[in-house]
Design a binder for these strands. Structure first.
Lengths: 346, 346
DNA sequence: CTGAAAGCGCTAACAA
DNA sequence: TTGTTAGCGCTTTCAG
């Protein structure tokens, strides 16, 4: 006698994962009923539901997301591209994103572009292959190729952290004015009677350049601008780099009464190094940063800085993306502002 | 005359994404040939290949990952569960993981469990639905339900950061001995003639408890152990919390000559707060941490701490996972060790 | 080197 | 409330 299963098509691939059909036959129902229990339990009678739930548990069934995505054409993923995971700022943005998207059933594919536009382009293609329902991108500086692809795909997307030029057509964006924030900070320093205010720019990503523009605007408006005051270092920002750069500045004989660092990591390093050299911050050198990282309130002296709404940027961007994915129309850019936080360092 | 396409089945779902078949007909070949160009270009003649590549570019074709995963049963994802993305340690572990897995074509699904075993369990189920080829988990303390599910699934997995008890059956693991590291640190302090060495435990995750055990072992071996020396705070670790806890300790009138903090964040906060109070570190109070975060070398005084091989843990764990996914047999636990880094703080 | 047919596991549409 | 049928877009198997 032939084995009972001989007439069934032999399972060729996919070793032996438990499928919907397995659960269905164990519970004595059709697959679609099991599917309903999973997706819309209200549509199945309590009786059957219990039997099916029991069968699922017993067999250890795990739904196959690929099959589900393919059949329903309803995306389960959102791709998020940030420049760095090492940076507290983007981690908090991600937290905001997650808190909005996860309850809605979306999983997040996180891409770390390493501040590199070409890597971003490659990563985008990879992630697109997973059929995400939407995209969350950092900044507005994508490569031309990426922009083109984004346009032709017509995939819902929201850009984060910056703001488009006013009165220009722009993709949905949630952020704040990096430039205005830097101008506010420079104005503050000038108001405190600092005159030789250096700008220390590391990393040189687009947001750093916007901050430098903001500082320049203020300095020029007050007749204090001078090219020498711009100190540039293409390396990655870090506390250590901040210390090293202060050492270089001092060695160069450059005279400054204040130093505006493009971010808090660097500013903290400058403060630590100044301390090590017995300099008094802010008397010998005022130091300010950008972002208000968690530790900035606790170092000595506390760091004067710009508090950026990164968590809120994440939340609001995700909220807008949700609307877009639901068929809503493109929202206007949202400016979430910033806050100047004054502490002992300037 | 009926339109040329009238005999084709009407496309019901999935609006209008460009498919393999579209590319195929544009290039005048069959879909499978296009598929081969994508997956194994060597098997297609240069002539056809060029035509197909052109068609792909022209139509802006993006492969559908769900369909590919479903048809090939070859997983494209690896799920990684870490307790926190805010923690530099895990971010560096992730970097190691990515550097190994991405060149092999795997994308990474990152889960942030928030140090919560139940959330970890939920997250695992969600991620399992994406059909990952393997799992990278932090620690060895999963809930019973999770352990059971992991056993029945027989999904390749590697645990990170800790080490299983010796001579016990254990899942593949890459890490180092948290306990031995803490013992080494306590021994070091004792060797420097510190006697009243407090242990400041925040967060209370499993690795913190292991570190406490290591400290206890050393203290007991030297007859210096005393329950009062254990200071416990269930809140999340942070620089700020470290400062607050030092304040509490001082207010309580407790006398200590050294403080062993369960991680560097907290230790940094303690150092900053001590500084603020005009205390001399290490004379009035020696302070040590755990992990050797980037900033720990730069604060004043530099922090004596344990350098942990988290980047290597990520790399090695990913390498082992790759082997397992390729059908290799379970590797023995790998101990990557640690390094005691002495700086000014103790 | 290229293609036809079948089917991965699930859900949408329609029927009973 | 439940089931039947077809098909999502791709790759596998097997032929040519």
């Amino acid at each position: 006698m032939a084995p009972a299963t001989s007439s069934l098509p032999r399972r060729r691939r996919g070793a032996g994962r438990v499928t919907l059909a397995d659960v269905a036959s164990a519970a004595g129902v059709s697959s679609i009923t099991v599917s309903r229990v999973l997706n819309d339990p209200g549509k199945v009678s309590a009786d059957l539901r219990d039997r099916i739930v029991a069968a699922i548990a017993e067999l250890g069934y795990v739904p196959n997301g690929a099959a589900r995505a393919l059949a329903s054409a309803r995306p389960l993923l959102v791709a998020v591209l940030v420049p760095s995971l090492t940076n507290e700022v983007f981690v908090e943005t991600l937290r905001g994103i997650r808190e909005v998207l996860q309850p809605k059933g979306y999983q997040i594919l996180i891409g770390d572009t390493g501040y590199d536009a070409d890597d971003e382009a490659r990563m985008l293609d990879t992630y697109l292959a997973f059929g995400p329902g939407g995209l969350l991108l950092t900044g507005l500086q994508q490569t031309e190729a990426v922009k083109l692809r984004l346009e032709t795909l017509r995939l819902p997307r929201v850009h984060m952290m910056e703001l488009p030029a006013p009165n220009q057509p722009a993709p949905p964006t949630v952020g704040f004015s990096q430039t205005a924030a830097a101008t506010a900070m420079a104005d503050y320093l000038i108001g405190r009677n600092y005159r030789r205010i250096g700008f220390l720019a590391t990393q040189l990503d687009h947001r750093t350049l916007l901050r430098r523009d903001g500082w320049r605007a203020s300095m020029q408006a007050h007749g204090l601008y001078n090219t020498d005051l711009e100190i540039t270092d293409p390396g990655r920002s870090s506390v250590g780099r901040g210390g090293e750069l202060l050492t270089q500045i001092l060695a160069s004989g450059m005279k400054l009464d204040a130093l505006f660092c493009n971010n808090d990591d660097v500013a903290q390093g400058v403060v630590f190094e100044a301390q090590r050299r017995g300099m008094d911050v802010p008397k010998d050198l005022a130091v300010v940063g950008f972002n208000d990282l968690a530790a900035s309130a606790w170092i000595n002296p506390g760091l004067t800085t710009i508090a950026t709404p990164r968590y809120e940027v994440g939340r609001e961007a995700a909220l807008r993306l949700l609307e877009l994915m639901g068929g809503g129309s493109a929202p206007a850019p949202l400016d979430l502002g910033f806050r100047l936080v004054t502490r002992g360092s300037a």
